[in-house]
């Protein structure tokens, strides 16, 4: 239920992001989801990619500070209130979310990538409420 996310520390300078995507492209690694947390000096890139271990290895070889972090991908209906219902469940169970980002793929569902303080508790809560989670096997080919 837990999937692997790639986190990369990036200096805040022009062209740095394109260097990274260029390396992934050259190694035939597809990016499924992508988000950046930015501060004045640096950014933290978070992404779900096909073959995360290989991606981490090639990026490290090119001098990037890379870390593989565990997240869950929660599938919610793509309509008003869909995300809210799921978040209410998490909130009611007192699980603190560190960060999240979401994307809709055009069909009737949307996916939210969530990192919580306690990943184990998050998975338990979501499963208990029968919320659908992305499986490791299919997530990287989204």
């Amino acid at each position: 239920m837990i999937i692997k996310q790639l986190s990369v520390f990036l200096d805040n300078r022009t062209g740095r992001l394109a260097e990274l995507t260029g390396i992934l492209a050259a190694n035939d690694i597809n990016i499924s989801a992508f988000s950046i947390a930015d501060t004045a000096d640096y950014g933290i890139l978070r992404m779900i990619v096909g073959r995360p271990e290989l991606a981490a290895e090639v990026l490290k070889k090119h001098g990037f500070a890379v870390k593989i972090t565990e997240v869950v991908g929660m599938i919610v209906p793509h309509r008003p209130g869909g995300l809210h219902k799921a978040l209410q469940v998490i909130s009611d169970s007192n699980v603190a979310i560190d960060y999240m980002y979401a994307f809709a793929t055009g069909d009737c569902n949307a996916t939210a990538i969530i990192r919580a303080e306690s990943m184990q508790k998050l998975v338990e809560v979501l499963q208990e409420h029968k919320l659908e989670l992305l499986k490791e096997g299919d997530v990287y080919q989204l």
Partner: peptide, 15 residues
């Protein structure tokens, strides 16, 4: 320079 093994992907940790 941040030592790689201590890099956290959470802004609050880095801050």
């Amino acid at each position: 320079e941040v030592e790689e093994q201590f890099f956290s992907d959470e802004v609050k940790e880095l801050e």
